[in-house]
């Protein structure tokens, strides 16, 4: 019963061995040789050659906090693994590693995402901002300043993620009301329950009080 959905080789009209040969090793040859077309060439002339990367590392280029970086990552490396590991940007925190807390929040092309649940390879060519990029020279950003002056943290573990979500919010909506701030941080969990002070800090930064 449970096997009902498994496609059989007969229905496909192609042998498993032939299939694997074309599909998987085609692209394993990247960088060293040419790509092989898939095996079912009878149906059309312009069959696609599918690139397959890994499991070893491949080169990727991305922009992090304004700096162009070229590095290497295996397909199963998350963006969080990459930034906290080889790139040594440890501001972004790993708490749940499942997209359920927001401590790992970074901005990809200006939008907050959970870097624990986003592959490094998918960040290829993208513009990444982490908490390390918020400072202007050696000065805290207005938002960071207002987090300090409003006591918007207790243990501080959620803070880097909170700052990134709030930075994206203020970018989009420079003067958010309370409800809009709540929405903006609805993907960031604060175990210490500092939300009230975070609302105040965002409000203060928005109204020019964080400078």
């Amino acid at each position: 019963m449970s096997r009902d959905n498994k496609a059989t080789e007969e229905t496909q009209g192609v042998t498993r061995r032939g299939f694997l040969k074309g599909a998987s090793f085609a692209a394993a040859a990247v960088g060293t040789g040419s790509l092989l077309p898939p095996p079912q060439t009878a149906s059309s002339q312009n069959e696609e050659e599918v690139l397959i990367l890994g499991t070893e590392e491949t080169k990727i280029a991305l922009t992090i906090n304004g700096e162009n970086i070229s590095t290497e990552a295996s397909p199963s490396t998350t963006l969080l693994d990459l930034i906290r590991g080889p790139l040594d940007l440890t501001g972004s925190k790993r708490v749940c590693d499942r997209g359920s807390c927001g401590a790992c929040t970074v901005l990809v092309d200006g939008k907050p995402i959970c870097s624990c649940s986003y592959l490094a390879l998918d960040a290829q060519g993208k513009n990444i901002q982490t908490v390390e990029g918020l400072m202007v020279g050696d000065k805290l950003s207005p938002l960071q300043n207002s987090f300090v002056s409003c006591d918007a943290l207790q243990c501080g573990f959620c803070t880097p993620g909170m700052l990134m979500s709030c930075t994206a919010l203020l970018e989009k909506n420079p003067n958010p009301n309370r409800e809009e701030i709540a929405k903006g941080i609805s993907g960031n969990l604060c175990r210490c329950g500092t939300y009230q002070n975070i609302f105040e800090a965002v409000h203060k930064a928005a109204t020019g009080g964080g400078k």
Binding site: S24, E48, V50, I52, G54, T55, S76
Partner: peptide, 14 residues
């Protein structure tokens, strides 16, 4: 996380 390869097709058929 267990490592995997990544296929990057350019078409749905692929």
């Amino acid at each position: 996380m267990k490592s995997f390869k990544m296929a990057m097709p350019k078409t749905l058929e692929g």
